[in-house]
Amino acid sequence: MKSRIHPASRPVVFRDRAAGAAFLTRSTADSDQRVTWEDGRSYPVIDVETSSASHPFYTGTRQVLDQAGRIEQFNRRYGSGVPATGE
């Protein structure tokens, strides 16, 4: 593997502003803003809009669509059969 072609990986804090959650992980991203983490060290912080703490899929607040109702609505609106072809 060639040396000096990969960006440096460092510990970074990602902060989810919507949920008020933060997590420390490694990343190549960098930021001028810094935050003091629970271990007393200062790390670069990157603010994100959505993470697993606020995304509906991971939090269980995802809305389940009523597929049967949608099919019935489609059939009522457009008919339940396929139009007959040239007989």
Rank of each mutant, 00 (worst) to 15 (best):
residue 26 R to E: 14
residue 49 E to P: 14
residue 43 Y to C: 03
residue 47 D to R: 02
residue 36 T to V: 12
residue 47 D to H: 09
residue 37 W to P: 02
residue 42 S to L: 08
residue 38 E to H: 06
residue 33 Q to L: 05
residue 51 S to K: 10
residue 64 V to L: 12
residue 53 A to M: 01
residue 28 T to R: 08
residue 51 S to W: 07
residue 52 S to P: 01
residue 61 T to L: 00
residue 42 S to Q: 14
residue 40 G to E: 03
residue 66 D to W: 05
residue 59 T to Y: 06
residue 44 P to D: 10
residue 55 H to N: 08
residue 68 A to N: 13
residue 31 S to D: 09
residue 32 D to R: 06
residue 34 R to G: 05
residue 64 V to Q: 15
residue 27 S to F: 03
residue 55 H to V: 03
residue 27 S to A: 04
residue 45 V to S: 06
residue 32 D to P: 05
residue 66 D to S: 06
residue 30 D to M: 00
residue 38 E to F: 11
residue 66 D to Y: 05
residue 63 Q to N: 08
residue 61 T to E: 05
residue 61 T to Q: 09
residue 56 P to E: 07
residue 31 S to R: 00
residue 30 D to P: 01
residue 52 S to V: 09
residue 27 S to R: 01
residue 51 S to Y: 10
residue 42 S to E: 15
residue 61 T to S: 10
residue 36 T to W: 03
residue 38 E to L: 11
residue 36 T to I: 10
residue 44 P to A: 11
residue 34 R to V: 12
residue 60 G to I: 09
residue 30 D to A: 12
residue 40 G to T: 02
residue 39 D to S: 06
residue 61 T to N: 10
residue 65 L to F: 14
residue 49 E to D: 15
residue 42 S to P: 02
residue 64 V to K: 15
residue 45 V to F: 03
residue 41 R to D: 15
residue 48 V to Q: 07
residue 60 G to W: 07
residue 56 P to F: 00
residue 60 G to S: 14
residue 48 V to L: 14
residue 34 R to K: 11
residue 37 W to V: 03
residue 49 E to I: 15
residue 40 G to R: 01
residue 25 T to W: 03
residue 52 S to K: 11
residue 26 R to D: 12
residue 48 V to F: 09
residue 34 R to T: 13
residue 34 R to F: 06
residue 55 H to P: 03
residue 65 L to M: 14
residue 32 D to Y: 01
residue 48 V to G: 11
residue 41 R to S: 14
residue 31 S to H: 02
residue 67 Q to H: 14
residue 42 S to Y: 03
residue 50 T to A: 09
residue 64 V to A: 13
residue 28 T to S: 08
residue 31 S to F: 00
residue 42 S to G: 08
residue 41 R to G: 09
residue 59 T to L: 01
residue 51 S to A: 13
residue 60 G to H: 11
residue 36 T to F: 05
residue 68 A to C: 08
residue 52 S to M: 10
residue 47 D to W: 03
residue 46 I to N: 05
residue 62 R to V: 07
residue 68 A to V: 11
residue 45 V to Q: 04
residue 33 Q to E: 12
residue 51 S to T: 15
residue 65 L to V: 15
residue 60 G to N: 11
